[in-house]
Every structure is written in structure tokens, then in C-alpha cells.
Write a protein that binds this DNA or RNA. Structure first.
Lengths: 210, 210, 210, 210
DNA sequence: AATGAATGAGTGTTCATTCAT
DNA sequence: AATGAATGAACACTCATTCAT
């Protein structure tokens, strides 16, 4: 019983930590439990990471990196969100991202609510998305020879509270929601997309549309 | 000695706990710190409460009660949300509630994300709101002699992800948001209301409106 | 089983720590062992002290205070060290102090040898003794109308290496020495005093004497 | 890769350990730090040494061997300590030894103070020196046809507390002393020799002299 | 000879909770 | 109603040592 998979130890630790942090929160997580779940000796965790905090840092770095990667993809891939196929593809990409990162998103939402949080990158990350949107929309206005009539702040509030956060909440609460309302994953996803179109997307079109 | 305000000790403990739970999360909170902030001896906390958990329970009970009270008020008070004055009054009431309970809302959001949470009443509470909405809307349809064409689930998804949660998120993140985007409380509130009308309320009208 | 002697807990902790630090060194000491020896719960140690270090600090403070107290006594009490009775009384006082503080002296000698020691007050404390001596001797010279012909440094070297340190070493090694050479405490003390007179005191007289 | 000086690894480990033990004490020393300072992999330490203890053992063996070598030299080289040149040469040899072994002497002094020390060879080593002195002095008495009137114990106390230990203390504290009193190495050495002559050597002459 | 990875047994410290008064 | 003292069970983190290569 030893280390034929020694190369994976660090990844197994990260994976275990991600799950446990999501299940019980960072403060509720025990390093012993992470070690058990990862199937490694507790001391090995401190061989790879300076502290429990450092594990979270590394997880967040990955989340941020994946988020950036998603954004750079979607921005170029879907030039016209009014087209049904593009909107659907965009939603699929984003919800897939959300679901596959739901653990980290839960942790991020939780940590960013702490007032003294060292991990308050959430707003900064969201702002980068918003800046992307802003650029994208302004380009549309430009192409039509129109001046963009809305403030950055207006856009920020809309994107944050009715665009980004609903998707994050979808990631964080879909499991519980499906349980409570006895919905399948697919059912919830399709309903969520419909609702998202009716709210956020519809507002988009009103503001920037046509 | 020094107990002229002894009557308030329990309230001071609850107040201190609410703040600290919101600041660092339930697991991150220390009973010592709650005692310090409340200005009472640590053992006194155990005179009034069975455990740290029991403090949280009592806080949540109050949140639920206040929530119910808010709901029963608004339902009867604003019969026609399409009227501008009633919509604004409704939003004011709700956002005021959100802001004045932001600490508890933060805690509730955090705790309800834990998979094994003993405090997962969030969805149940939300469902009660949704049931209220449903009833209210069905009455409108009835009064017009029309059948209500939408499923409970459809409504639940919409109310939860684009109605209730944005308001909760407003409570939980408004401070951070105002800081980041250098907005005043009033500015954010007004923008949020505009955006909320454009998204959630507009969808309402599309679905149930006219 | 509780706390009829609760008032003494802190003192018992200090006493236990003093013994254990002397036996195995500060770094070799285990907080668990201190708790056991003191007959208290380990957590109680952290109720009274911020850390293991803080215990040592408080022990050293006491050693310093007792040292000062000894010095202020002896300085005034023995105006003429050349008189046999006064020299003997002085030696008795000092050796008694040394023996009764041997644990702390051991710790101080050990800690002050560490190059990065936070507890390097040894030389400062010794210098205060030396300053006292210097003043005392200068007064003698003054009273005879003579200029004091020796440098502070010369005196410091002599007092430190042949006066103070031998007494500290007596404290630190007398037990082992008595064991090794099968001498009784009294025998060693008397021999030490003779030898001390023959070396340090004799030099005193040569330098400052008559 | 990178083992052009592989032959020196063991020596580098010993050197690093000596420094670190002297700096922070044996118990305060970390095998990791020794490996870092020696520039070798931690596991290599266990290739050359059975344990951390074994490193100390080997260091002490060298100290003992060097000490013996010094003693055998000085005893034969300086037949008449009353002659100024011989006394000075003797002192130079001893202080040079002390300074060049100051790290190990610090460790020896520290370890020998622990009551349960496995490394309590200090007194045995000192006794060998004392035996040497005794022999040497007795020879002088014999050569004059006189009986030696002093006990071994009397001599032991004098040699240990006013001869050997001051020299060890010189080794252990000279750096700190020079810092505190702003003395150069040379200044301290010369002063120490004067003082040593005035105390220990003067007593020698009184006891065994002429 | 040398190393990166791994581990068991600690090690100082914390914390919710209880007790005696 | 209120408190200072006390405690058991963790807790994050450490460390000497070993293993596989």
C-alpha cells in the first residue's frame, strides 16, 4: 500500500477539499477529513500545501482561470445572442460550466459573503465579465452608428443581480431545488433557461436590443 | 455588579451573534467573541441558550417570523402590482426587509448551501412565498374566467431564481457592491428596482399579465 | 474533583513549567507534561498564558525581579567585603539565591546561548550587577581620594567570567558535581566559597583592595 | 545529478548540524533545516546517520577527541606555567581551541544541564583534565620532595568552576559579550587572559606555587 | 549516493461547554 | 442573573523517520 499513484496525490487532495469545502464550508471542513477522502496521510497535505487556506487559494485560482477561459470562448463564439441557436449554445456553455464548478461556486459565494474575507475576488471576477459584456454591446451600438445610452453602473447592477448571480445560484442550489420540487436535472435546466430568457435576456433586448 | 441592563443580556447576545455569524459564518464564529461583543460573560450565553446552535435556531425563527409577517402584509396591501405606486411600495417594503435582515439572510444563504445543513429551511420558506404568489395570481385568472396555464414548477423556478434570490442577493451583497462600484445606497436601490422591474416584473406581466 | 485550590492553579503551572524546562530544556518540554505535573487540564494553561513562550517570559520576569531584589539587599548590607563576616554573609546570600533559583538559572543559561534568543536578558542583567559593583568600588576609591584606575570593560570581564558566571554555574551544575565527586551539598558549598575567595575575591583585592 | 562534491555530503551535514544545534539547541533544531543548510536532501541524512541523535553523538565524539588531543599537547608542551611565555602560549592554545569549538561547546553546556541527559559526558571530560592537572602538580611537589597537601576534591572544584568553565563560558558567550560591551575579539581575549591570570592562575600559585 | 513522496505519532493551541459560587 | 475557573475533545500543523526508485 503505497504510492503507485503518487503523481495524483496533490490532485486527489484538491478534489477532496473541493467536495468537503462545498459540503460543510471552509471553516466547517477538517483537514483530517480531507486527508481521509483523498486517501492520503494528513501530513502529505502539508507537504503540498502551506496551510488549509492555501488549498482554498489554489482551488479559487483554478476557478478564476476556468472562468476566464469560459469567457474568452463565449465572447467570440456567439456574436449574435438574439439568434436562438446562439443563445441556447451560450446558455448551455454557461450552465455546464456552472454545474461542473458548482462546488467551487458554493465556496466562493459563501466566502465572499464574509465581511473580512480574504477571498473576495467574486466582484472583481464578475466585473471582468461585465466589462466584457459592455464592450460587446458597445460594439453593436457602434456598428449601428448609435451612442450607447446606459451607464456602466446600470449595466453592472443588471448583469450582476439578474445575469451572473442567477447562474451562480443555479449552480449552488440546483441540487436542493431538484430535490425539493422533484424535478429532474434536465427539467430544471430547461425551465431555468426559459425563465432566464424571459427575464435577463428579455431585458437585454429591451435595453440594447434590435 | 453592573447589571442595570440585565434584562437585555439575551437580546445583546442575539444581536452580537447575528453580527458575528454574518461576518465570519457560523462555523467561523467563536462563542468567546459573541460574549465579548455582547459584553457578557461567556457562561451566561449557556444560561440563555443550550448551545451555539440554539442561538442560530432562535435567530432563524425570528427571520422566518418576520418573513411571514412581511408576506401577509404585502399580499393584502398591494392587490395590483401593475399599478406603479403599488409596485414601488411593494419593492420598498421588500428591499427594506432585505436590508434590515441582511445579516440573517447572509447566514441563511450560507447555511442552506451546506449539503448536510440542519438549517435548510430556505427552500421551504421560499416555497411558502411562491405558494402565496400562486394563489394570488390564480385569483386574478379566476376573476377573468381564465384557466391558469402555467405549472407550479415553472412559477417556482422563476420566483426563486429571478425574484426571491435577487432580493436576497441584494441583501447579502449590496454593501460589497456599493463599495466596489462606488454607488450610494440610494443609487443602488433605485437602479436595482429599475432592473428588477425590467426582468422579473416584466416576465410576470408576460406570463400572467394584462 | 474540582477547584478547591483554584487560586493556586496558575502558580502550580509556573512551578511545573520551571521544573520541566530545567529538566529537558524549553524546546524539549511538552505542554502536556507541564499540565500533568501541575495537575491541571492542559487547556487551563492557555487560560492563564497566551502560549508556552509566555510561561517562560513570566518565569524570567520573576527571576529578574528576585535578582534585583537580591542585589539591592546585598549592596547596602555588606559595606566592607574585606571583613570576613561580611564576605561570608554575602556569599551565603548569593549561593542561597543561586540554589533556590537553580532551575531558572539553568533555563536562562541555556536560552541565552541561542543566537537568535528572544530571552537574551542575561547580559543586561549581569551588567546591572556590574554597574552596581562599579559604583560601590568607585565610592571606596573616592573616599580615599584616589582616581579609579580601571576601565568598565576590564571590570565587566572580570565580574562576568570569574564572579557571576561561576555562581550561575554553581547553581546549574552543583547537583551533577556533587553526584560525580560524591560530595555533600555542604562540602561543595564550603569548598566553592574557599575557591571563590581565592580567585575572584583575591583579584578584587588586588585590583581595588586595601 | 549535481554531486561533484558528493564526497563532502556527510561533512556538510555535520557542519550544518553543528551550526544549527548551536543556534537553536538540539531540540529546537529541525532535520529539514539541517538538510537545507547542508544543501542535501533530507533523506540523505538518514543514509549517513541513524537518527538526529546520532549526528549529535558524532559531533560530540569529535569534540572529545579534539579535547584529548589538546590536553595531551599542552601538558607536555608547557612544563612551567609560571613562566610568562609558557602561560601565554598555554592560554592561546586553550582559547583558540575554545573559539574554534564554540558551537560544540555551547551544545555540550546546554545538553549537560538537562537532568536526564544522554550526553552528560561533560563532567567526565572535565575530570580527565583535572586528573591531568593533578598528576602534573603532584610531579612538581614530588620533585621538591614535598607532600601534596590538597585533596582531589578541592582541586576539582577549583579547576572546574574557575578554570575550565570560564574558558567554556568564554567560548559560549564571547560573541554576545563582544556585542554587548562593544569590544573587539582581540580586546576581549587579552582582557580575559589578564583576568584569568589574576584569578585562576593566581590561585594556582597560592596553592601549588613556588 | 541521492531524492521526492509518504507517514505515524505527536505538539501547541482552540473551542464549545460545564461547574461552583 | 452572572461569573471566573476548569475541561474533553478536537484542531491545524509539525517532525523525525521511512520508502521506492
Amino acid at each position: 500500500m503505497a504510492n503507485k499513484d503518487s503523481i495524483n496525490s496533490k490532485q486527489r487532495i484538491l478534489g477532496a477539499a473541493e467536495q468537503i469545502f462545498a459540503e460543510v464550508g471552509f471553516d466547517g471542513a477538517r483537514v483530517d477529513d480531507i486527508a481521509s477522502k483523498a486517501g492520503v496521510n494528513k501530513a502529505l497535505i502539508y507537504y503540498y500545501f502551506e496551510s488549509k487556506d492555501a488549498i482554498l487559494d489554489e482551488l479559487f485560482e483554478k476557478l478564476m482561470a476556468d472562468g476566464k477561459s469560459l469567457q474568452s470562448q463565449t465572447l467570440s463564439d456567439y456574436p449574435d445572442m438574439n439568434r436562438e441557436d446562439m443563445f441556447m449554445a451560450f446558455m448551455e456553455k454557461n450552465l455546464e460550466f456552472a454545474l461542473s464548478h458548482k462546488n467551487l461556486i458554493k465556496i466562493a459565494l459563501t466566502e465572499s459573503m464574509k465581511s473580512n474575507s480574504k477571498h473576495s475576488g467574486l466582484l472583481k471576477r464578475c466585473d471582468m465579465v461585465i466589462e466584457g459584456e459592455l464592450e460587446y454591446i458597445k460594439k453593436i451600438y457602434d456598428s449601428k452608428g448609435l451612442a450607447f445610452p446606459y451607464s456602466k453602473k446600470e449595466l453592472a447592477v443588471m448583469e450582476f443581480f439578474t445575469g451572473i448571480m442567477p447562474i451562480f445560484n443555479y449552480a449552488a442550489y440546483s441540487d436542493a431545488f431538484e430535490d425539493y420540487y422533484e424535478m429532474s436535472e434536465t427539467e430544471l435546466k430547461e425551465t431555468f433557461i426559459r425563465v432566464f430568457r424571459l427575464t435577463h435576456m428579455s431585458a437585454h433586448q429591451k435595453l440594447y436590443g434590435k
